[in-house]
Design a protein around this nucleic acid. Structure first.
Lengths: 254, 254
DNA sequence: AACTGTGAAGATCTTCACAGCA
DNA sequence: TGCTGTGAAGATCTTCACAGTT
């Protein structure tokens, strides 16, 4: 199996449902936009619209964080931004290393929204000696021999794997052995990690396959269906959350 | 709201649950690997291990497709590969266009697993005139003025948006107007699309934020907890499936 | 009057556990 | 005997609908 994952209640301590946690970043993004426009307050209806969810769901989600709204008025934008950031752990600094600096790794390194939210690219690592020293997004690439040292020196706990599929597991093992406990995997492989380590995957081909499934179905309906063209609009997120156990699909490999 | 999405039973016709559809690509990947090793049959237990899911779930998933296994034996690898491919619509050709050829767009264009599964990069489109004609992954980039013509000439129904956030919605609108009905969005924005159009998103910063949340929690437990270091391993997929209505998070922007 | 917070109903998804076929 | 297929129980998530607060 992918690994020694344990049945974790999926939601611990303060008990925020996993599905809710997965949406907090969306709310945060919408709130940040409002904040930049100096909007003081929003109603659940407005914010839900901006985040693309239904308002009841949003209110229920916020209710797990506490009672941060004011009846008859709505939510204070700045206050909510702070509360959600804190809940997500974004009020602290998270040094991140990206392993595998190909097009994808470079794209990730250049991604701005990165630094903006407490994440800091502590280092870029690649196995190709020819890449060593070359700056990508202003950061010099380091050779993978340095991996362990980099992780330790920077106190990195989050690693991003953007290597080819074959290199992913070995890299993962080294990251974990060096102390990384959260991994974002872009390689099209199921990673095996020990208990205590979280892995999230993003896999392009899987996303495309899911779209193809629905696309095929639409095509079938056109000709088949008798009850007129039924609506079928949907906006699924390529990132939900599967069960606490078992891996699920995701999006995009190196 | 992200858009005019309609309450669709989420699962139509043959009624394959959305959660199952999201896992089919995983099974397919594992099966393909077995097929390459010329393994003739697999048990649900073995395949589940390779795909990183629990065997009961896998059997239940397959049961929605039909009874393709043999009691006492297992599943015929080749046969299953075919059945799942067909179910996902991968037995047909899906021309895809990628809009926004920055590092990410280039990474996607270079992604191999692409062509391997019925997907064909029909065109690369970018708004920068300087990019026009330049080959990326062997395909010449075309200027966005050509977008509508490209979509129509190639019968493209799936579009990938890898542009900066600000350009995403306009690009999306043009793609949809030209006939695209499935969109994979890498820009960190909620896209609004009409009914009948599917959108899946992939957003790096959201994935990192979710990891940070769990990471923060782990840190808290270390000091807090009294019941010894509890296991907390998890492998969530950065791509699950939210409800049929409402967008959910995902992974990675341009 | 407007809008939040939430119990309760409903929908979906997961897991168990075992009947049933090869 | 070995392993699939699946009813049923359980867990999670979503949505409703309205009581409660400003």
């Amino acid at each position: 199996m992918a690994t020694g994952r344990t049945h974790r209640p999926a939601t611990r301590s303060r008990g925020i449902p996993e599905a809710t946690v997965a949406r907090l970043p969306l709310y945060l993004r919408a709130l940040t936009a409002l904040s930049e426009r100096s909007v003081p307050t929003v109603s659940s209806e407005e914010l839900a619209a901006a985040a693309g969810v239904n308002s009841a769901k949003l209110r229920k989600d916020f209710s797990y964080l506490g009672s941060y709204g004011t009846r008859g008025v709505g939510y204070d934008v700045e206050y909510l931004v702070y509360q959600i950031s804190r809940e997500l752990g974004l009020t602290q600094d998270w040094p991140v290393v990206i392993v595998g600096i190909g097009n994808l790794g470079a794209a990730l390194a250049n991604y701005g929204g990165f630094a903006s939210r407490g994440f800091r690219v502590a280092a870029l690592i690649d196995a190709d000696p020819a890449m060593a020293g070359k700056p990508v997004a202003g950061i010099p690439v380091q050779h993978s021999d340095e991996l362990e040292k980099i992780i330790k020196d920077n106190g990195v706990s989050i690693g991003v794997i953007a290597t080819p599929a074959g290199a992913a597991q070995p890299v993962c093992d080294r990251l974990v052995a060096a102390g990384v406990t959260s991994i974002l995997n872009f390689a099209p492989t199921v990673l095996t990690v020990p208990d205590g380590v979280d892995v999230r995957k993003v896999d392009l081909s899987i996303e495309l396959q899911i779209l193809a499934f629905h696309e095929q179905r639409k095509a079938g309906e056109e000709t088949a269906a008798g009850d007129g063209a039924l609506p079928a609009a949907t906006t699924r997120n390529a990132a939900g959350d599967q069960g606490p156990d078992g891996d699920v699909p995701a999006v995009m490999p190196a």
